[in-house]
């Protein structure tokens, strides 16, 4: 726990929020609802996308993201996203999602395992049609399923990098890991995709 905290501190200098973001935060602190609304509009859909990759339910994803925003509003007076608004929001949503999953896992461990196995089977089965060439859209769908099969942290690294175009340092902050680990996770994810798509070769 200690070492993790230290890691985050070393990254924070790279992630100092710029002046515009500080202004945003300052206005939210002063209960400026329009500033809070634009924050919401900027990030809501992206955060829902991200959380849905954890909880696999759009309704649950929305609830969790809303809870994060509500909490910020209720504690706005002391809101201090030192490493930038985006990293803060993604980190908070991930923590919320993990919390929800942990609870759910206790309750429905068996059900989840079954689902995961189903997905694995779906991918393992050859998806080639009679046509020689795989449809481009199928390629895309195989990639997405491959992303879904990645372990939680590795999947989040991929999503934050490709969808949010975050730097390694920012991803490291969101996930509470070191930059080196982020790089390693990304490398492993790419190797996995390489294998998965090669596997489909006609």
């Amino acid at each position: 726990m200690r070492s993790r905290t230290r890691q985050i501190v070393t990254h924070s200098s790279l992630l100092a929020p710029d002046a515009a973001e500080r202004e945003w935060v300052a206005r939210v602190r002063l209960a400026d609802e329009s500033a809070f609304e634009s924050l919401f509009h900027t990030y809501y859909a992206r955060l829902c996308d991200f959380v849905e990759s954890y909880v696999h339910s759009p309704d649950v994803a929305e609830e969790l993201v809303q809870a994060v925003f509500l909490r910020i509003w209720e504690h706005r007076a002391t809101w201090e996203p030192t490493t930038g608004v985006r990293a803060y929001l993604f980190a908070a949503c991930r923590n919320h999602a993990l919390g929800a999953l942990k609870h759910e896992r206790v309750v429905a461990r068996v059900a989840r395992r079954a689902t995961r196995e189903e997905i694995a089977l779906g991918i393992a089965a050859p998806r080639m049609g009679p046509d020689e060439e795989l449809q481009a859209s199928e390629l895309a769908s195989v990639l997405r399923q491959a992303v879904d099969r990645l372990p939680e942290r590795r999947r989040s690294v991929v999503i934050l990098r490709w969808q949010e175009q975050m730097s390694y340092a920012e991803i490291a902050h969101v996930l509470g890991i070191s930059v080196k680990t982020v790089e390693a996770q990304m490398g492993r994810a790419l190797a996995f995709f390489r294998r998965q798509l090669a596997h489909l070769r006609p």
Partner: peptide
């Protein structure tokens, strides 16, 4: 195919 792949990468976290 690369185009399709890039599009899919940009939407990697979303359901198939």
């Amino acid at each position: 195919e690369l185009r399709a792949l890039v599009a899919a990468m940009g939407a990697a976290g979303r359901p198939t």
